[in-house]
Design a protein around this nucleic acid. Structure first.
Lengths: 340, 340
DNA sequence: CATAGTCTCGTAAACGTTTACGGAGATCGG
DNA sequence: CCGATCTCCGTAAACGTTTACGAGACTATG
């Protein structure tokens, strides 16, 4: 048997709905005996407070929305990237009875309009953004709507929004220094679409590092490619037939690395021998041959930080996370491989 | 400027909230002039009806939940798999103003309890399931709660629930016949955890096909492995050192194939030469060397069918999809590769 | 002109919950 | 034994929306 509505549950117990509600919500003014009775009955009859009614009254939904776009060509992240991050986010939210849902924006719908719609409806108490773009209306939009949010990926049009982004500057420094010290002079970069800001940031950092060594990043060595196997394959082919082939390449699209390897091999080049490859860690990375030299990070911990940063900006939870970082560049560690 | 609440919007227009609501919802009893005025003002002031209020009154949320579990070790599918399916689902839902969200169940929470909680709250009008298990409480639970749903993956405890599953029987027939005709006699199978029913179904089908040829599926040739690179790698190693090595393997875990290849290679075996490999299509499949012989399917179309099947079981939309399949085995086509 | 019909709109109830408020009974201190 | 305090609970308002209902102002029709 299943009971629908607090009214039915209250009638069933010969108690007023007020008391039932208080009992369920752990409020003070309720006898411990009746509380037990209520809890037991709710459990037995499968009563759970209606989401809409509760949200309407309380003014908060208990839901956090993580916006992502369907159709996988947009972001450069590997296949299990988000699921790992989510797992970290959840462990934090679970402590507060918050639920994480992914807001799925169709590839046919305008992301800005979608987000505005969802936020304006009051669907979620907080928003997580991903795949931030170089000019990203969404930051201003969320500011305007005054809803707490955090971005996975930095904002370039800076007005103080909270975010956590990968430390691309650190990555650029480590990668470029390593390559230069090993004698590389012509170094290429593979990044996803220019509109995503991670590639933009990374290139800037690379230029800085290279300049310190009196080197430059040649325009014809910057490859934009879809963050998938096909994109990597094409770049591999392109590299092989490049009139002035670089001796190394750094790959931001972790989904493209295996494609790149096979593209190179198909053209008779051996990664790590004919051309050094440094990438981002992905599940495949250590099973590639040669093993990929790559930057690793704890996605689960990243998710935890992401959640804490968001909660820190929500009035109801801020006091619990007094020293959560408002903005953070997430450190990555280099894992030695055989590819570069 | 942003307006909050239909009351404010109505006051701003010197109109009653009833009329405003009717205007926004395209109801009949409203002058076309005032409707335009309302629509324009709503657009300009950024008014969108509150989700909770609307859902509470209408008794439906306009939200469809796709349940999935975070932490990627459970299901064999990755982000791109789901994102492609979602894209298809969305194109159908968009026509009806329905929104798809992914209900993310933490790996630390019991999936059944999670689903019960979400459904009982009335969070969504319909549910999509994935990663169905051999004994899956969720089917009975959704039946009991009388909420429309569809599963991506069949139910084995059969009481007529709607689902779409991959045609593993067809796949088994095609794959096994092909291998047998090419002279293979000892054929292995790699599948994810036994608790997921796809592996169970597939094995059964394989046994049937093999029996027709007077062959059997040896117990020591059935490998259960985590649906990831590491799992595949270990099986590759295991195959290489198998006392009576099979000459072919069919792989259900698409996330494991590259790992399997590298595991084999690390042990000195060449896929497609020393051992035939047939798998499922994945973004990597055609960039592997040798190219993977695999079964492909249109994920986007699968999503469309999934959505239509669900809508067909929702009273409000059923009439629009009179001949949507209630249950469906989704066809897959074999793509010739070099691996087997 | 009277009546019926049409068009448009305002009013108010309802959806399921939470919570401020007040009241009834019990307990306690003097 | 009386007033004060405490414990527990019921009542009712409020959250923002949709919609059934009815009313007023026209128009058409006879």
């Amino acid at each position: 048997m299943v009971v629908k509505g607090i009214r039915q549950l209250a009638d069933h117990l010969d108690i007023s709905i007020g008391t039932v509600s208080r009992a369920l919500n752990g409020k003070k003014d309720v006898n411990e005996d009746t509380r037990r009775r209520v809890l037991e009955a709710a459990e037995r009859l499968g009563y759970v407070a209606n989401q809409s009614g509760r949200a309407l009254r309380k003014g908060s939904t208990g839901v956090i929305g993580f916006m992502m776009q369907t159709g996988h060509e947009i972001t450069g992240q590997g296949d299990t990237f988000f699921m790992s991050v989510f797992d970290g986010v959840q462990t934090v939210f679970a402590r507060h009875g918050l639920d994480l849902v992914a807001l799925l924006c169709s590839s046919e719908e305008d992301p800005d309009a979608y987000l505005e719609r969802v936020v304006a409806r009051g669907f979620a108490d907080g928003i997580m953004l991903s795949a931030t773009r170089r000019v990203d209306e969404r930051f201003a939009l969320l500011d305007r709507r005054k809803i707490p949010f955090v971005a996975l990926g930095r904002s370039l049009t800076d007005v103080g929004q909270p975010f956590i982004d990968l430390d691309f500057e650190g990555m650029a420094t480590t990668a470029m220094t390593r390559l230069v010290e090993r004698g590389h002079r012509r170094i290429a970069v593979l990044r996803p679409h220019d509109d995503l800001n991670l590639g933009h940031v990374f290139l800037g950092a690379c230029r800085l590092v290279l300049a310190e060594h009196g080197l430059t990043l040649e325009d014809d060595l910057i490859f934009d490619a879809s963050p998938n196997e096909a994109g990597g394959y094409r770049v591999g082919q392109g590299l092989a037939h490049h009139p002035d082939r670089p001796s190394a390449i750094v790959v931001l699209n972790d989904g493209s690395v295996t494609g790149l390897f096979h593209g190179l091999e198909a053209a008779g080049l051996t990664p790590g021998k004919d051309i050094a490859v440094i990438g981002l860690h992905s599940p495949q990375a250590r099973y590639l041959s040669p093993r990929l030299t790559c930057f690793d990070l704890s996605l689960r911990d990243l998710g935890i930080s992401l959640a804490e940063t968001l909660l820190a900006s929500m009035p109801a939870y801020a006091s619990l996370y007094p020293n959560a970082a408002h903005r953070q560049l997430w450190p990555m560690t280099l894992i030695d491989g055989d590819s570069g």
